Amino acid sequence: MELQRIQLSNQAPLFGLCPAASNRINTIFMSTYFAGGTLGTFLSGAAWAHFGWPGVVAAGALLSAASLSLTLLSGK
Rank of each mutant, 00 (worst) to 15 (best):
L73R: 14
P13T: 06
N23C: 02
Q4V: 10
G45N: 12
W48R: 09
L17G: 01
A65E: 06
H50W: 09
S67V: 05
V57C: 10
F34T: 13
P54A: 06
G16N: 12
G52L: 10
A35W: 11
I25A: 00
E2R: 15
L70F: 11
L39W: 09
G37F: 07
L62F: 11
E2M: 13
L8D: 12
W53Y: 12
Q11H: 06
S74T: 06
I28K: 03
L39Q: 06
F42T: 09
A65C: 12
G75K: 02
S67I: 05
W53N: 09
T27K: 13
A59L: 00
G40C: 08
C18D: 15
S9D: 11
G55R: 04
G45P: 07
R5D: 15
I25K: 00
G40T: 03
L70T: 05
Y33F: 15
T71N: 06
L73Q: 09
A20G: 08
S22I: 06
F29C: 03
I6Q: 14
S9A: 15
L17E: 06
F15M: 07
Y33Q: 14
P54W: 03
G45Q: 05
T32K: 05
C18Y: 07
L68Y: 05
T38N: 05
L43V: 04
S69K: 07
A12T: 11
N26C: 05
G55Q: 02
Q7H: 11
A35M: 13
K76C: 07
Q11P: 01
M30P: 01
P19Y: 02
M30D: 04
F34W: 13
G60C: 03
T71I: 08
G45M: 09
V57R: 04
L72R: 10
L8T: 13
